[in-house]
Amino acid sequence: MKKQVIAAAALCGLLSGTAFAQTVEGPWLVRARAVHLDSANGDSTGLGLAINNKWIPEVDISYFITPKVAVELVLTVPQKHTLTSRGTTIGSFKHLPPTLTAQYHFDPIGSGAFKPYVGAGINYTRFSAVSLPPGVDIKRSSWGPALQVGVDIPLTKQLSLNFDLKKVYIRTDVSAGGANIGTFKADPTLFGVGLGWRF
């Protein structure tokens, strides 16, 4: 009888452990998004500088430190932009803007159908392949804050649909003949839609 009780207790422990493992989500979340970049085009040079808006690919990797707190690294490939002055094309450049944010994930809304989150962090942008008129140049790097809000909508146990909105502060000093003539502020708003995989 004693052996049967021990066996039953062990079986219950095994089953409850299995059930617990099935209900606990893994700490990693990887998303792939299509993101629309909409630049604020703030310019203090007096040249009327602006870059084009565009759709870009984005991949991000999140790690959940706790069930509600995560860190996210946002990655893409160098993006080429056309630079215009009062509507006339004057050159182009590429920029690579990796962003790191800390996120807070709220309790699910509507029986787990919506999982909203907010985030804040820092962006580093590297400018390359700069092609501008002779004597005109831009600073090659930019540091700035990033703000984020989004929602995950579960499709299966591990797969989710994601909508994400970020404001990233990207700016660079503009020079002509070696003298600083002002600052160009791209400061884009980025709206993304994609899929996430939790493991």
Rank of each mutant, 00 (worst) to 15 (best):
R198P: 03
D164I: 09
G192N: 04
A186V: 12
P67R: 12
L14F: 06
Q158D: 04
H81Q: 15
V30A: 00
A186F: 02
F114G: 01
L155T: 08
G194Y: 03
T18N: 10
I122W: 15
L49C: 01
A176G: 15
A7I: 10
N123K: 03
Q79A: 14
G150C: 01
W197Y: 15
R33Q: 14
P57Y: 05
Y117Q: 08
V149T: 04
L73D: 02
P57I: 14
N180H: 05
A40E: 10
A34D: 11
P97E: 11
T156E: 02
I6N: 03
S39W: 13
P133D: 14
W197L: 15
T45A: 13
N180F: 00
P116G: 07
T172V: 08
G135W: 05
Y117H: 10
Q148A: 09
V35P: 06
K3T: 05
I109Y: 07
K68W: 08
T76L: 10
D38S: 11
I6W: 06
V174Q: 09
P67T: 11
G178M: 10
I170Q: 09
K94F: 03
T18Q: 09
L165S: 00
V193G: 05
W55N: 15
T82F: 06
G182T: 08
I138F: 13
L159V: 15
V5E: 13
K94I: 08
G13L: 13
I181G: 02
D60Y: 08
I6G: 00
K157R: 13
I56T: 15
I153Y: 04
R86M: 12
A32C: 01
F184I: 04
L14V: 06
R126W: 07
D164W: 04
E58H: 14
L15W: 12
G177T: 07
G177S: 07
H105Q: 12
I65C: 01
T89P: 02
R171I: 05
F184K: 03
G46S: 08
P188W: 13
K185I: 06
E72I: 13
D187I: 01
G110D: 02
A102Q: 07
L190I: 07
I51D: 03
K2R: 14
I65K: 00
D152E: 14
K167T: 03
L165Y: 04
K185L: 08
Y169P: 05
A186H: 05
F191K: 05
Y117C: 10
S44E: 07
L159I: 14
I109L: 15
K139N: 03
V130M: 02
K185T: 07
S62G: 14
G91C: 09
N123D: 11
L155W: 02
V69A: 11
L11K: 09
A19D: 03
S62F: 05
T84D: 00
G112C: 04
D38M: 08
A102T: 11
T23M: 07
S39N: 14
G144L: 12
S131L: 08
D60H: 12
D60R: 09
A10N: 12
T89I: 04
L83R: 01
Q4P: 04
N123L: 06
W28C: 00
N162W: 05
Y117I: 10
T156F: 01
R126G: 08
G194W: 02
K3P: 00
T172Y: 11
P116S: 06
L132D: 05
G144A: 13
D38P: 01
T84E: 01
